[in-house]
Design a protein around this nucleic acid. Structure first.
Lengths: 267, 267
DNA sequence: AAATCAGGGTTGTATGATAACACGACAACG
DNA sequence: CGTTGTCGTGTTATCATACAACCCTGATTT
């Protein structure tokens, strides 16, 4: 046994469902900035959960700056136009469509980063990329060392853009993507994949070394398409409209409540 | 009259205090990655609060990715070596090259967003964009209303990508760019500029409406190039800015508990 | 020895109660 | 008439307790 009976990573707590439901209401404009939310009691009954759960959800939204609340008055939708920090909630990332979206964003950044790197790379950048590739060749596919070298390669590409924000964002997004993949943990490994993946990286490297902007873009696009396949995202027109269609392990308990929440959120 | 005394800055909730206390323990290394936290009951008694408060704090830390918990086992410190939030420092943005880099990143995102929007826009998106354009036509160039409509237009484009992360990132980057421009505040206004800028937006809109992917990209690229010129970006410089670090008012009630928490946490 | 199961410990959720606070209604008072 | 004090209601913040679901361990049984 012990086959990868999905370890149900972070089974979404009820508070998470409630939080994303409210969050969705805000995002879709049904709750505008300054609006007062229903009372905790009302939310609890409409969602069919305890007030405690609602409070955890609200605490979370408050910590994200989406709403603010005052004792004796109520909770109100905050001004969302001043996000001073950017955070990606990785419980939401467990949803397939969210993951796809983030992967798409990563792709855009990676491809353009490859283009800039092909224009601006210096000798030091090329050496760093070469070292990272060597590291990938030396390590077994999927091992920790392999993953580290993989990340390192992409990091050096980002660095070669000479745009620190590009690197910052790219690392941030890539890390979230990687975490999500590791959490799913359903990727099979083979020597073929090692060879293919390595080849993709080498083509990216070659194009960047030659200053071939469009070649670098194409090679990176290929690589990402391959990576998408390897993690089980079918390629092509990736992200469809965001709809709450999560597939993960079915919730055991409270399934009716969860369904109700999902239904109302989906709209 | 109207003496504006600060609106009572309410003391943070107990759950916030508990959360930041635990957070500090992690940051200072007293709780290493993988360590198991004390049980909720234990935390409740040591902090002198109810288990409910502890749960809200833990829910918050969990949503921030600092810890993860599993029913029946406990809560554990997550791998937090990679940043879970992304922030852009105000001061570094004042440097011209930093600003240029951020502007470049914004350009990449905007151009690709325009492409995706041309593919995926729906009728509601087109209407929203049209409304934003109307708002720009009605408002004087550079006015608050004009800026709001401008932002609104770009936001609707991002929304039409059907990729929430795209919108999130784009809004975040654009806001930083806009703040920086406003801080510089050395842009001249003219009717010519109003006409030109509006025309750029209209071409973007037309291309997206027609589903012209490359046209949308080109139009957005034009617009950004124009915007770069208008803010004096090629030899540009930035201005000074301040960053008021505001203090929180002293908590009124539960002061003993709060002090206890602060004391133990502060070290 | 291996499988099964019982028990305790922990988190997740529900429920009710109390305290702190905001706000309007209303009477008392000048 | 305007002001003030008081009260009542509604809401959030917190507490306390109980139960359900789940994990882990170890004894019991096969």
């Amino acid at each position: 046994m012990t086959l990868k009976l999905d370890k149900v990573n972070r089974g979404p707590h009820l508070s998470t469902l409630v939080a994303s439901s409210i969050s969705r209401e805000i995002a879709q404009g049904r709750l505008k900035t300054g609006d007062q939310l229903p009372t905790e009691q009302a939310l609890a009954t409409t969602f069919g959960v305890s007030r405690n759960v609602v409070r955890e959800a609200i605490a979370r939204l408050r910590s994200e700056g989406r709403i603010w609340s005052q004792q004796g008055r109520g909770a109100f939708v905050a001004e969302t136009n001043n996000p001073t920090v950017l955070t990606i909630d990785h419980e939401t990332l467990q949803r397939a469509d969210s993951f796809r979206n983030l992967f798409e964003l990563r792709g855009i950044l990676e491809v353009q980063a490859a283009a800039l790197a092909a224009k601006r790379r210096g000798d030091a950048d090329l050496k760093a990329m070469g070292d990272a590739l060597s590291g990938m060749r030396a390590a077994p596919y999927g091992s920790v060392a392999w993953l580290r070298s993989d990340l390192e390669f992409h990091r050096t590409v980002a660095e070669a853009t000479r745009n620190s924000y590009m690197g910052q964002f790219l690392v941030f997004v890539s890390e979230r993507v990687r975490e999500s993949i590791l959490a799913a943990g359903n990727q099979q490994k083979s020597d073929d994949m090692a060879r293919i993946t390595l080849g993709e990286h080498e083509r990216i490297f070659a194009a960047i070394r030659n200053g071939d902007v469009e070649g670098a873009q194409a090679a990176m696009r290929d690589h990402l398409a391959g990576a998408a396949l390897r993690v089980g995202l079918h390629e092509g027109e990736a992200a469809e409209a965001e709809s709450p269609a999560r597939e993960v392990a079915s919730p055991v308990r409270h399934s009716r409540l969860r369904k109700a929440i999902r239904g109302q959120a989906g709209g």
